[in-house]
Design a protein around this nucleic acid. Structure first.
Length: 464
RNA sequence: GGCUGAGUGGCAGAGUGGCUAUGCAGCGGACUGCAAAUCCGUGUACCUCGGUUCGACUCCGGGCUCAGCCUCCA
């Protein structure tokens, strides 16, 4: 039985889908004006693992993750670069896909874009205006009247009067209430725009998600996710828009992931303390980033440091070593039910990936022990490790190729052939019992970051 | 100020009202020409002060500290 923490109720609840056997899930994706940083990577990986787990439970999952491809920042960046917004967004969408693919993130079933959803957006704004939840202000912008929506503040645990008293002095005099937010922005000269009953303009940020999620999944769906910082106001506003427009309950379960931090501080663009996925990929393998993300619970803060990435590398080395030493995988060897149950129990407990990883390590030890003792269960344990790890999207590479490091590492150090040659040379020395020469070669390789392992079947090597 | 969440051993990070988390690092042993890898064993822990309880790191209350949201943000 799957339990998950619902931000709406702030409680762990049993998951019950609206339609038996099916899950409809929407996650707020990126605004594409720059490269993905580790915070974006965390959202991608966390919800990827959630989808994988739901599917492993047998659910037919429809996963939607949108792309925001028009907003103030995109427009500003495009102006700055002297290009149109489509050139800019296409470039960063491609970059995001590259990063997501590298991290082993499966593509969502639908990836709607704001600019391709104008009909749905305009339709929803129209309904809100018709029902009296929205108004066109003197400056031409269309606003949502927060005071008209009764449940406002439930998701974020905020009270309307407190929000209002704490609200900053608004520059936008056109609003009737400082809490009102924009649904449609009239275009200033030179800005990209789409025609609408309220004049040419572009959608506000919140309305696109309401429109796209409703279009893809219906007015009422199971799970809506995103980063913790979207809880307010973005998701609060989505609820207000969608429920006012459709008259239906919007979402049953809200899932919000915690932040990536640097030195105990949120990683963000404005603080300038962010690391892009590509920067990190120059020094670490993608799977190491993925493991690092999964090594803490999705709602906990995740502190970025080289030390922690190094630990992810060490952990993967151990798991891959166990798999490598177990020999060729046999997919028909079956699963060890005790380990599978423990693993699923961990994942069913609000997607407890650290606990699930601990099961993998116990499995690795059992596997190593079985192999050393010549037990018959090796193939089954190895297969179990491989399959369960696959549900987290790790350990799917050829162990030897992971342990020998990426091609990138070969560019700065010796290539595989050179290493093989030195290893062969050392093998010769060892046969002659020339330990001094043997150790000299091993030390030489060690300085290049190559570690040797002498085993019964010959010498193996890996990059540290 | 309001509202969330968190404080676990050298580091990272789960969890539980009484019973080994797990990984890395450390220590002892096995294996090895020596190593590495692996296996076996092992040490160090639950912010603080009260309360509940036969018994609390785990529940309740106060305090302290930290992070986040309240403004664009994953």
């Amino acid at each position: 039985m799957l339990k998950l923490f619902n931000s709406l109720t702030r409680k762990k609840e049993e998951f019950v889908p609206i339609e038996p056997g099916k899950v409809r899930m929407y996650v707020c994706g990126m605004t594409v004006y720059d490269l993905c940083h580790l915070g974006h990577a965390r959202v991608l990986v966390v919800f990827d693992v959630i989808v994988r787990h739901l599917r492993s439970l047998g659910y037919d999952v429809t996963y939607v993750r949108n792309i925001t491809d028009v907003d103030d920042k995109i427009i500003a960046r495009a102006v700055q670069n002297g290009e149109n917004i489509t050139e800019l967004t296409e470039r960063f969408i491609a970059a995001m896909h590259e990063d997501a693919d590298a991290l082993g993130v499966l593509r969502p079933d639908f990836e709607p874009r704001a600019t391709e959803s104008m009909d749905d957006i305009l339709d929803m704004i129209g309904r809100l205006v018709d029902k009296g939840y929205a108004y066109q202000a003197d400056n031409g912008d269309v606003y949502y009247a927060v005071s008209k929506f009764e449940g406002y503040g439930q998701l974020s645990g905020k009270r309307i009067d407190e929000l209002r008293s704490g609200a900053r002095v608004d520059i936008e005099q056109a609003k009737h209430d400082p809490l009102d937010f924009v649904l449609w922005k009239v275009a200033k000269p030179g800005e990209p725009s789409w025609p609408s009953p309220w004049g040419p303009g572009r959608p506000g940020w919140h309305i696109e998600c309401s429109a796209m999620s409703t279009d893809c999944l219906g007015a009422h769906f199971d799970i809506h996710g995103g980063g913790m910082d979207l809880q307010f106001p973005h998701h609060e506003n989505e609820i207000a828009q969608s429920e006012a427009a459709t008259g239906e309950h919007f979402v049953n379960y809200w899932i919000h992931n915690g932040f990536v931090q640097v030195d105990e501080e949120k990683m963000s663009k404005s603080l300038g303390n962010f690391f892009t996925v590509r920067e990190i990929l120059q020094r670490y393998q993608p799977e190491e980033i993925r493991y690092f993300i999964l090594s803490s619970h999705y709602r906990s803060p995740l502190n970025y440091s080289d030390d922690n990435l190094d630990k992810a590398r060490g952990a993967l080395q151990r798991l891959y070593t166990a798999l490598r030493d177990a020999g060729t995988l046999q997919a028909d060897a079956g699963l060890d039910s005790a380990y599978e149950e423990r693993f699923q129990a961990a994942m069913n407990d609000d997607f407890n990936t650290p606990e699930a990883l601990a099961v993998l390590f116990d499995l690795a030890r059992a596997l190593n022990r079985a192999r050393e003792q010549g037990d018959a269960g090796v193939a089954r344990l190895a297969n179990t490790l491989h399959v369960l790890a696959g549900r987290l999207g790790i350990l799917q590479a050829e162990p030897e190729s992971y342990l020998r490091g990426p091609q990138g590492a070969a560019e700065t150090g010796p290539d595989d052939a050179e290493i093989d040659a030195l290893v062969a040379q050392r093998e010769q020395a060892r046969e002659n019992r020339d330990w001094a020469e043997s150790d000299r070669i091993r030390d030489q390789l060690a300085e290049l970051g190559i570690v040797l392992e002498d085993g019964a079947g010959g010498t193996r090597w890996r990059r540290e």
